[in-house]
Design a protein around this nucleic acid. Sequence first.
DNA 1: GAGTTTGAAACT
DNA 2: CAGTTTCAAACTC
Length: 620
Amino acid sequence: MHADQAVLAAVHALAQSPLRPGVLDDVTDVAQLRKQLETHFDVNLTEPEAAHAGMARALEEELRQLDGELELEQHATRLVRGGDVAPSPGGNPNDARGANGRRSLRGAAARGATGPAGVGAVAAQAAEESMKRSSTTGASTEWPHGLAKTLKNDGRDSPRVQSSRGNGKKSANGNAGGVAPGGGGGSKSKKAGAGGGGGGGSIERLDQSANAGGRRGGAQGASDRRLSVSAAATPAVKGERPAGPLTTPSPTKDGEDPSKSCESKKCNCKKSKCLKLYCECFAAGVFCHECSCQNCQNTSDNAGLVQMTRQQIELRNPNAFADKIVASGDGGGQHKKGCHCKKSACLKKYCECFQAGVLCQDYCKCDGCKNKEDNGQFGGRGGAAAAKPIRMPTLSGHGTQAAAIAAVEEAAMFMASENDHHGLIMEDLMHMKSPGRVGLINAGLMSPGRFGMGLMSPGRGLVMSPGRAVLAAVDGLGLDLLQSPPKAAPPEAATPAAGSNASGGSNSVGATPMKARGETVSPLTPGSGRGTILRAGPGRLTLTGGSAINTRSKAPPPRFDGKPNANSAKGPMVTPTVTRSSRKTRSFGAMSGSHDAALAGGMITTLGSPVPLSTPEGFE
DNA sequence: GAGTTTGAAACT
DNA sequence: CAGTTTCAAACTC
Ligand SMILES: [Zn+2]
Ligand SMILES: [Zn+2]
Ligand SMILES: [Zn+2]
Ligand SMILES: [Zn+2]
Ligand SMILES: [Zn+2]
Ligand SMILES: [Zn+2]
């Protein structure tokens, strides 16, 4: 029933579309819906298999179009840029194709990577969305690297933060209650999403513009704090990263100015001079801009010092600026080192896993973790973190190597910069450095950008458009309309990481390349190359949330999320739904694990690090 | 806004 | 490495 209801909800949402008045108006039950769809699109839903290809394609096309139109209307203001909003649902190669990868993300989302929510949730969201139409995206702002941070006042920083409030109810309704870190609740936290698509902007890093122009979509990201840290880290390497290395987090509102957009994070460091990883700005690779820090040395005037400090840190820990969140096989991301939470049950942002929106791994050393996959309940993933598990792209192979390379490049850049004016921002340098790499990265990595995918928006809102929702819903029913195409894999595009999950669909089985599950060790660690690093830079995991945590059932010990009570009743309806997890992946190429290695290697090579990368990893 | 809690970063 | 200390964000009131 859930599925049916979900479908209906979605359908209604669709029906409301001004673009298609009358369509589906009379649908009151699934059977009818089928019929309508069949009639309207001239397809035979009863035997999906047969018709599949052809009709599915047609239908998809239609929906997609509709989707696009709606989006334009509704979010005209939103910057769509490339990423997020992309029309195509899951793996459609079309969109995905080249560029960056949004596809993968999107795909993930669409498929339920996010999982918990399930079809029902999606549909509900869709419906919701239609209602709210106004909402912009979300709420919080993100940093360059994608993390979110809570803004402290200061201004308008996050324009949208409050949106959630405004809309209000949404959250209540539904699904998720709330655990999601970012988004949900309304609390102040925010993060934003800038990156990719939408939103507004993102930090202003130059890079962005560069990318932007090109279109990278979003980035992937990580989360806040140091999770993704890296942005700056290796600038060069990161070129890809959406963010550039240093820049200032400027707070501009999201309005126009692409160059700066809304992001605002500001640190409040008092004793670190903003030259230690304690400082979010420093960790993220940006100069402090309008921060409230004291004795700040992380300024463009001190670029040299900043660089040196950074290099030192990297020497000690090559991975210091590497992303902490890497892609996991199932489409979600995972913390490379794992968290060590003792009291938060990994349900608060104190936990890096949770903050990044990824589930805790076996190698996390947390106590009383409530952010582990488990949950057998529905599809499976439900962890709290669900916050938003987006999948990240995988980029390079061995972390260490990458780190080493990064360090080298960084150094190189620095030197270069010295020649010129210091004032330069690393990003600039980066660009100069190796453009090629950027391209690669963009191509390979992707970034999902937070919302990019569609399902969740930061604020919770759903992002899925009605059309898409319908598709999803249908999918849930088992119709699987889209499946068709042969799209299989885009050319090579790569899809690095994506590969990993890609297959997901089919069988769940084993494939997961990375997961490797090792027992303890974090697979991701450097040495082995299994894990790919996501490069966080800018990335964004988006936390926001909406996720789906499931509150249901057991109440966790600590209250998650922000508000303390809030739910007394809590029992909102969660729409668990999902009869099955719908994850199927549509298109991506499926690749298997091997890729990683290959890709990684390739990438790295390609990157051409100036220096010998040989250093395997060695130290730490 | 002040004060507390928390867990990563830094240090020993 | 483990054990502490330091630190700034997340959270609470
Ligand atoms: Zn700082
Ligand atoms: Zn700062
Ligand atoms: Zn500062
Ligand atoms: Zn944790
Ligand atoms: Zn964890
Ligand atoms: Zn945990």
